[in-house]
Amino acid sequence: MSGLALHKRLEQNAGLLIFGILLVSSIGGLVQILPVLNQEVVDEPAVNARVYTAIELTGRDIYIREGCSVCHSQQIRPLIAEVERYGPYSRAEEFIYDRPFLWGSKRTGPDLHRVGGKFSDDWHRVHLIDPREVVSKSIMPGYPWLARRDASQAGNITAKMRGLRFLGHPYSDEDIEAAPSQLEGLKEIDTLIAYLQMLGTGYDEEQAL
């Protein structure tokens, strides 16, 4: 059967057409995604990479909830200007414990991948509640409610850690049991600051630029 005749059948048979679309559209994804899911460089944690503590994890989920990644990337590209501005460029093995990834697609505000340790906790606190107190021309929204809400109310921390352990994050039973008491007395803003302060600290100094 010639190609044209074969195609004529396709044009008249809904089942074949569905099959054709599925086949043709899946090739690209299979070739690109399957190897990446098995590639070592994106599968092995960096030397200093560690799982998030209960406090940091709570902070990270608040970062996600408030949509911080809409305006802040966490991905320093290997370009001179970026490395100068933000620090050593981002490496795949630093993100092993990131579910979901938070690389972002837009920098309305600056990149945050290596923001950890660059500002004091107090600076972050003031800045998160009212950014214009410390950066006069900032267009970032304020997040005053973070200072009012209790961190222990921001999701079920033990269920979260169990879920992540199921996905392979090395949390021990002790880690999970101790989690609720670690959050006690903290406000949401405290956990978010803890998360921001550890961002980007998981790279290997020897290897880094």
Partner: peptide
């Protein structure tokens, strides 16, 4: 709340 089956670069 749920956590992605994929992590980091794979998730991206």
């Amino acid at each position: 709340k749920s956590y992605s089956l994929y992590s980091g670069a794979q998730d991206a």
